[in-house]
Each structure stands twice: as structure tokens, then as C-alpha cells.
Write a protein that binds this DNA or RNA. Structure first.
Lengths: 260, 260
DNA sequence: CGGGGATTTGACACATATCAAGAGCGGTGG
DNA sequence: CCACCGCTCTTGATATGTGTCAAATCCCCG
């Protein structure tokens, strides 16, 4: 269970926000084959030769400062984006101005698929810390898909998983109570950090209570109270954005306690 | 704005549940090119010659009785399904047994995309009236996609729109109050019936109050009260499952009345 | 005509929102 | 280096929307 060869991040380190010196240009290789995220990201599951072909996919990286928009609702759609490093939120806005966070995105995850159908992004993506994304021109993705059945299928899987993921959020929003939602949220984050070689039990939140609340369909005060409650119950320890999960099973149990 | 040539259903008739005599085998053509739904369904936007090629796509139709499952959570994934006639709900279940309706599906809409990623369906699909679906083997869809760029792209669009649609439900569940949710729901149904050539202002609900509630994250009593409220306010008229929308603008207004 | 599920409606309970105040922390500028 | 400012977070008191429980009615279907 130790970090595998291609997993070059150190295990058990809490994932902490990073800051890149302004203006520095990324010199890490742009090729998917040598990217340590390749088995979390789009190329996941591709074999050696296919993996090499894939390098035509990404021809640009883009660096974003914290708070910067990767794209905005209404922007023309042209590319998908894979998070290379950093952390993002995606936001959806209603005509009357109400808005909701519809997702948080970390290394290896794909953003922008909402734009393919309408040819315009229906929501916005914002960097929550200084971040870097791989720009994947959609036209190139389609072309590669045609030439490489494996990759074609892989992309469908990624979209499909996005659909499944969103359905589970619908379930969360539709059937869970506040503390259950927060528990589910923390466990989900923990699991995703684990998959990236970071500690499962200790991490830094990149988002504010308000953003968590927006995502979970709660007000920030309710989120804060739930955090406090978990802490009182010894399930977690919270210091600002620093979270330690002390009792995973307790959190799990807390998710399934609805009588109905 | 009259029904176009390929739109052969009569306009302004309330869409009513249909019953096929048991055992009757569908003799309507299985070819997409001659299906009156082709511009709502997967082939939407394809030109003449491409449209002809598409007929390799569907080689089976499947008839379902009301209440029957098209697929269940955990079933192996092999095909997508296009609703040919009738009405479906898709349901997602939590480990602890709680479940939620994640969507309602009518003619021309595609179900089953949740299965591609996990290779297993994550939720179930149930016919809410006697229905018929076109079975689209996924392998065939991939193959056609490789050969026909237009179709390839079209499928991505369909998946993308599913993602967008689900995000708007997340918004509904996360930010709207009960009456807003129901108003949004009715307007959405109305719009989809309209696209199919049925009346925008008069239709029959295929689902129970409980199913509506499940979809909207509300209890059935709350749904019932909201219906009554709308009726008192002269926005709609309700008799059991028969709905008449009397004041579209009123319903729209009702959706955007949150101060926050 | 009878039975059972679906729907409506009322009374009440409860979870979460709202409003408000204060504390903690980080960044900026003196 | 310290003080101040603004933002985020916490916590309390109260309001309110929706859930829960219960009973009556409606309606479809056998």
C-alpha cells in the first residue's frame, strides 16, 4: 500500500495550499505519459503506446491565481480543463442571481464538460488557490477519440462518472440532514485526497464555510455548527481550515442515522 | 410555429398516458430515419446520409408494462435506452435504503448513461406507464461514433446536456423553496411537452405526489399543499393528475421571489 | 359496491435559516 | 514590530418553512 513508483507525492502529508511564485512558467513536462496524475486523469487506464499518442492532447498549460476565473458562465466552449495542481470550485447561477457551488475539483479532475452540449459554459470555474490546468482543446479530444477506441471509451467513462457523481449530490441535497451532508462531504474529500497520495485523515480545506454551505445547500452558520458538533463528539478536530478526521467510522455512522 | 412536417403528433392535445394492448408487438419502423422523434433524440442534428447510417444503431425495441424495471441498480451495463413512448423515472438508492427520484424521462430522452463509467448501473429506471424504448447497444454506439464524427459529437452533446440538467436540479435542491421547486418542475414539464408537440398548458402527470416530492426533495404533503396554494392563487388548476397551467408568468414570477 | 392506495388538510414538532454580536486571523501600512 | 482593518468563523436567540403524525376524502379498479 505504499506509494507506487508513479505516485511521486509523499504519502501521509496533509494536502496544503500551494503558492507558485508569480510569473514562473511551468517547466514540468506537458506530456501526459510522464505526468504523475495520468492514472487519475483522462488517460487513466491507457496502455503504453496509447499513452504516448495522447501527448497530442494537451498543448497548453494555464496558470491561475487564486480567485481567478478559468471560465465564466456564457463563455464560448472550446476546451476541457484537467486540474494539474491547485483547487477549483464550479458555480452555477440562477437568473435571479442566486448561485450555488456545484463542485470542488482537485488534481486530475476534468472541468468544463458542461459546455459541450450548449457550446457555451453554463457555469463558471474559479481557482480557490493558485492553480494550474492542462488545456484540452475539444476538437483534439474528438479527433484522438476517433483514432483511439480506448481513449474514446475512456472519455465517455469520465463523463458518465460526472453524471453519477452529480446524482449522488442530488441524493445528498434531497434526502440528507445537515450533519449527514457535512459528514458525506468530509468523507468524500478524504477519499479523494487519499487517491492522490495525501493523508486520508488530515487536510486543509481550500474553501470557506460559505462555499461549503453553498455546495451542501446549507447556510454557513449551519456548516459551522455542524463542524463544532463533530468536534464536541470527537469525530474530527477543526482549526480554521485545518481538518483532522479522528473517527472515520463515527462519521460514516452519522450518515445513515435517518429513521425514514 | 406550427408543428413541422416531421412533427406528426397533433398540437395542443394534452399528453395523456397511453396503454398498449398487452402482447402487441411494435410494428412502427425501427429505423431512426423514419422515427418522428429523431430530432429530439440521439440522431438530432444529423443530415440525410448520416441519418441513414444510424439505423444500425437500434436493433431492438423493448416494451415495458407500467411499474416494470428497465434496469436496476447493480445491473451490468450494456446498452443505453431511448424512450420511444411512455414515461419513466430513474431512482438512486443510498446504502441505508433511502432513495430519491433523480429524473423523469419522456419520448426522445436517453437513459442509462450512468452505467458507462462504472460498467454497472448506479440507479434504476422504472416505467411509470406502459412504455417502449429503443435499445442502443453501447458497443454499436461507440463503433458508429468512430465512423461518423457528427454522430460522435452528437452523443457527447447528449451527455453534456445531462450534466447541465443535473446541475440545474442541484440548484433547485440547494437554493429553492418548496413552491419555487414545484413551479420550476411544472414549467420544465410544460416545456418538454411543448417540444414534443403537446399542449404547453395542459397535461397529465404520470407520477404520484410522492414521486414528485422525492424528485424535488420534499415530502408528498408539502407537494400537495403547494399544488393547493397554486390553485388558490389561480396559477394552475389541478384535478388529480390533470394539470392546467393558467398563468405561466405567475409561475415564473414565483420562482424568483427569494430576497437572498 | 367495496377496498386500498393516493391525495388533501390540519395541528404540531423540529431542523435550519435568520439576525446579531463578538472573536480570531491575516494582511497592510505606519 | 505593532495596530488596525476586513474577512471569516463561531455562537446565541429567535423565526420560519417544512416534516411528521393523523384523520378524512377521493378515486380508481376489481
Amino acid at each position: 500500500m505504499r506509494g507506487t513508483a508513479e505516485m511521486q507525492m509523499q504519502d501521509k502529508e496533509p494536502a496544503a495550499p500551494q503558492r507558485y511564485p508569480q510569473g514562473e512558467v511551468s517547466r514540468v513536462p506537458t506530456r501526459c505519459a510522464s505526468c504523475n496524475l495520468h492514472d487519475l486523469c483522462l488517460p487513466c487506464g491507457l496502455s503504453g503506446q496509447d499513452l504516448d499518442r495522447i501527448e497530442e492532447l494537451v498543448y497548453t498549460r494555464k496558470r491561475l491565481d487564486r480567485g481567478e476565473n478559468l471560465y465564466r458562465a456564457g463563455d464560448d466552449f472550446s476546451s476541457l480543463y484537467a486540474v494539474r495542481s491547485g483547487f477549483f470550485k464550479t458555480v452555477q447561477t440562477l437568473e435571479d442571481g442566486r448561485e450555488q457551488v456545484t463542485g470542488f475539483h482537485m488534481a486530475g479532475e476534468i472541468m468544463g464538460m458542461d459546455g459541450i452540449g450548449p457550446e457555451t459554459h453554463s457555469g463558471s470555474a474559479v481557482a480557490l488557490e493558485d492553480s494550474e490546468v492542462c488545456v484540452i482543446p475539444y476538437s483534439r479530444l474528438e479527433k484522438l477519440g476517433r483514432e483511439m477506441p480506448q481513449f474514446h471509451h475512456q472519455f465517455h467513462k469520465v463523463m458518465s462518472r460526472e453524471i453519477v457523481q452529480e446524482r449522488s449530490v442530488m441524493l445528498l441535497l434531497g434526502t440528507m440532514r445537515a450533519e449527514e451532508r457535512l459528514a458525506a462531504f468530509l468523507l468524500n474529500l478524504s477519499q479523494r485526497f487519499t487517491a492522490r497520495g495525501y493523508s486520508a485523515s488530515e487536510f486543509y480545506l481550500r474553501m470557506t464555510r460559505e462555499e461549503i454551505g453553498s455546495y451542501l445547500g446549507l447556510k454557513l452558520e449551519t456548516v459551522s455548527r455542524a463542524f463544532s458538533r463533530f468536534q464536541e463528539d470527537g469525530l474530527i478536530s477543526v482549526h480554521q481550515k485545518h481538518i483532522q478526521i479522528l473517527d472515520v467510522l463515527g462519521l460514516r455512522r452519522c450518515m445513515g442515522q435517518k429513521s425514514d
